[in-house]
Nucleic acid binder design. Sequence first.
RNA 1: GUACCUGUAGCUCAAUUGGAUAGAGCGCUUGGCUACGGACCAAGAGGUUGGGGGUUCGAGUCCCUCCAGGUACGCCA
Length: 565
Amino acid sequence: MQPFESVLAPMLKAYSKLAEDDLPLSAPPNLALGDVAVPMFLAAKKHGTAPVLFAKEVAESVAFGPEVISVAAAGPYLNLKLDRPAFAKRIVAAVLADGDRHGSNGSGRGMRALIEHTSINPNASPHVGRARNAMIGDALARLFRFEGYDVEVHYYVNDMGRQIGLLVLIADELEDLSFDGILDAYVRANARAEKDSAFAGQGYALLAKMEEGDPETQERFRRITDLCLQGQLAVLARLGATYDVFDHESEYLKDPRLDAVLEALRARGALFTDDEARLVVDLAKLGHTAEEGRYFVLMRANGSSMYGCRDLAYTIAKEEKGADVNLIVLGEDHKLYAQQLAMILEAAGHKAPEAVYYSYILLKEGKMSTRQGNVVLLSDFLDQAAALAAERVAEQCHDITPEEQRTIAEQVAVAAIRFAVLRVNANKNVIFDMDAALSFQGDTGPYVQYSCARINSILRKYGKPLPDTPGHAFPLAADAEWALLTRMAAFPGVVDTALRQRTCAPIAGFALDFARAFTTFYHECPVLQAGDPAIMEARLLLCRAALQTLRNALHILGIQAPERM
RNA sequence: GUACCUGUAGCUCAAUUGGAUAGAGCGCUUGGCUACGGACCAAGAGGUUGGGGGUUCGAGUCCCUCCAGGUACGCCA
C-alpha cells in the first residue's frame, strides 16, 4: 500500500538520485502546518545540499499534481496540504481490501522462524514477572506470523537439576501432591536442603541416577515435572500463549552434539580440568577479554554434567532445524550466560540464537520474591481483573448470556495484563502497580478494546449492508478524520520497525494512539447523524477500516477485540 | 570490585533511532451526558530529560566522568 504516490512520485521524478526511502513521510506537529510533512535530511544529503536549501528548492521547483494543494518549506521540512478526500478514499479502500492482513508487509513470506520462550522452571505457578517472558515471546511469535513467517514456538522444559531432584524427594513424603501444593513443597525442600546436608546429598544422588538413565528415576522426575508443566500451561493458556514443541532437557543428556563441541574446544586449547577435577572452559582462549565470566564449568568432579552441557546440545539441535530466524527470549539475568554459550558455540562452528532480553518486573515494595511471599501470581491477577471486568460487563451488557459475559470479562483481564507488559520496552525495569493495572482507564488494553466496542456499536446500530469499498463520493476532510487516515496508512511502517527491532512495544503504542484518535473522531464527527448520506457512508467505511486496523494491532499483541464489553 | 541494562512531569511510561515547541495516562483543577456506549472527551497547572563536561547546523538519544537503581560474575537451572 502506497497511497501517497502522488506526493512522492513528482519528487522522485525531478531528482533521479532519490529513492522512496529518502523521503519518509511524517506528520507535522500540527495540522495547521500541513497534512503531511517530509523531513529533507536524507534527501538533501544525497543531493549534496543543506536540508533547508533543498526543502526550499523542492517547494519552489517541483511540479506536483492536482492532489497536492500547496507546498511550503519550513526549515528542513516540506509541508504539504492535500486533497484529503482523494487520499481518504484510497487509504480506506486499501485497508478494507487488505482486511486481516492490513499492516503486514509480507517480509517473512517463504521464511521460517523458530522462537523459544517462557521455559519456566517447573517448580512454581508463574508470577507476572516470569510471565513477561511468555507475553513478549508470544507476541513476537504473532508478529512474525503476521509478517508471513512460518513460526515454530519451542518451550524448553528444565526437567533436570538439583532443585527438581529435591522436589521429587519431598514429593514422596506427600500424599496427593497437586500443582497448588508444589510451590510450598519447593520452598520447604530448598530450606531443608540448606540445613540437612544428608537430604541435599540424596538430591544429588537422585540426580546422578537420573543422568545415568535409570528408567524408574526418570519416571519419577517426569511425573513431577509434568504435573508442574501442566499447571503452568493452564495459567499461560489463559493469556492465549501457545507452544508448538516441548523439548525436555533430559532428552539432551549424553548427546553426541556435545562431544563435537568438546573436541573443538580442546583443539582451541580452551578446555581444561581444574585443580578440583572439574571440566572447565577458559573463554579467554576464545576471545573473552574480561576476567568476570571467564570460566564456564561443564562437568562436576564426579563426572555429572551441568546445565550448560544440555543447553549446548539443545541449542545446536534447534539450529539444525535451519530456521531463517532463531530467537530466544531470556531474562536479563541470563545475559552473561547466553554470551558465554554463544562464544562456545561459535568456537565449534555453530551460530547462537538471537537473544531478546527483558528486565524484571518489580513491585513498589521492591523485588518480587517467591520466598518472601511478595509476588503477584498471574492467575491471581487474572482472577481479580476478570471479577472487576465482570461487574462492568454485567452493568452494560445485561442482555447477553452470563457465559458470554464471563468470556468478555476474561478477555478484558487478559488485555489489561498483556497490554501493561507489552507496551513497555523490554529492557526496562517496570514497577508493577496492581491498582493501576486493574483500573482499565487511560493507557490500557481495555481502553483500546473499548474503542473497538464503540465502533462495533455504531456498525451494529446502522444495521444495513455496507459496500465493500468506497463509492465515487468520499467526502472525508475533517481534521479528526485525517488523523485517523494517516495513522492507518502508517501502520505497516510500525509493524516493520517492530519486527526489525524484535519488540511489540511500538504496536502497543500505535494501538493506544490510534484508539485515542478514534475517540476524538467519535466525539467530533457524528456518523449515523451525519446528515449527508454520502458523509455518513464514508464515515461508516472509515469506522470499519479503523476497526480493522485496531483488531490487527491487537491481534499481534494477543488481545481479543470483543464486539461488546 | 568489574561488566551489561536503566534513570524523562508527583507516579507509571512515550518520543519516527541524531531532527520542528520533549508527548500520553494516572493523580490534581475546571468544564461536558435531551449519549452513534462516560471503561469517554475538552481545557489547565505540572520538565535544567539524574549531575557535570564534550562532539555538531542540531543531543533525551552519541562520547567521557560522577551519582542512583537493576542484573550477573567457576560444581543453580
